[in-house]
Design a protein around this nucleic acid. Structure first.
Lengths: 201, 201
DNA sequence: TGTTGTGAAGTATTTCACAGCC
DNA sequence: GGCTGTGAAATACTTCACAACA
């Protein structure tokens, strides 16, 4: 659920740690309604106090646990291009428990280069490498042509989820969730909203 | 509507330009159902032929027009960091009619640097610069702290939509649509799905 | 015949509203 | 008194199923 992330985010910027927060307050920060917040949270157990609200500390812990980020995830980056670099250097990833334990790129000129604490690997032994390293999440930041093959190989290597930046729909077994980030589609969504808005007016 | 982008994407990889395509075929490529495709399309007029399907060329033109990408959009990039660079060099943007006409960065060391056909500008005269250049879309690829201010200034400069990579909810007038790309949230969504899936099993 | 366009039926999601508890 | 948890009502979205028609 996307909104749970938002609630957690609001909590982080919350002044009174140790204090209490109401569904009303969470709704205001999360761009939704108080009833929605309560429904969302009650679905995972009732950890609010009637008349008081939610204990900030407990709620944060609960949300982390629900989202599965009360632990570290071992992540492999596949594709060491511009987008890969931007992601690798994005500080929020590591700080939130997403630990990049390997980088792969098929370009022989890139293999062997050092990024931070990582040496870029060849994808030759991709499946066994990620299995050995205990990689659970794979970030695909490579051209559309290569994405499907690497997705399947990642699944073969035992990966549990895929964050896909390549502009194609990946075909993987349903037990492996895929999140797509398609930059062109985001711009098209904007363009659509602007265009429709102008037509209504 | 996100699905419209998908339909257009399927069409681009379609063998028989000049031919015809059925809702069934579009559904298969778009990860949805034939009925859904027909509902989506019929909402914007009925341009299919019963017994035949949709004319590929016409459908593509219609989708482009509905999405508002049957023209060029003038885009400004705000923030010339890793993410900004990755976006700027992303070939799909320009090829799909999103034309970067200015880059801004508040770092004096970056101002004056040349990226492709662009010189990085100081954001001092941001509002007037984007107004003069006719910028319609702004891509915010900068730290969360600076994002809100630049968003407001973009609105003051007459921008029509914002693509936001900063991990905060922007507060802008409702007439200006915002699309958020939050990389951490995408990973959290994955983590959530994996965690919930394991609990169900 | 084959496939669209679309009311009607079916699901899912959101909001309401209030009993229950602190 | 104040705020949560939650059935019930309302709304939105998806699927069904079939008449209309190239």
């Amino acid at each position: 659920m996307r909104r749970l992330s938002h609630y957690l985010r609001s909590l982080e910027g919350f002044p009174k740690s140790g204090g209490t927060v109401s569904s009303e307050e969470l709704a205001a920060r999360g761009q939704t309604t108080a009833a929605q917040v309560r429904k969302d949270l009650s679905h995972f157990g009732s950890f609010g106090k009637r008349g008081l609200g939610y204990q900030v500390d407990e709620l944060r812990d609960r949300l982390r646990s629900i989202l599965g980020i009360d632990r570290c995830w071992r992540v492999a980056l596949v594709g060491a291009g511009r987008i890969g670099l931007a992601l690798f250097e994005y500080p929020a990833f590591r700080s939130r428990g997403f630990d990049c334990v390997a980088i792969f790129d098929s370009d022989p000129k890139k293999v062997g280069q050092v990024w931070g604490d990582q040496v870029i690997r060849s994808p030759d032994d991709f499946e066994s490498a990620i299995a050995e390293l205990g990689v659970e999440l794979v970030i695909l930041a490579l051209p559309a042509e290569a994405a499907q093959e690497m997705a399947m190989r990642a699944v073969d290597g035992g990966v549990k989820g895929i964050l896909n930046f390549a502009p194609i729909r990946l075909n993987v077994p349903p037990k492996v969730p895929v999140e797509d980030v398609n930059l062109v589609m985001e711009l098209e969504a904007l363009s659509f909203q602007i265009t429709q808005g102008e037509q209504d007016a």
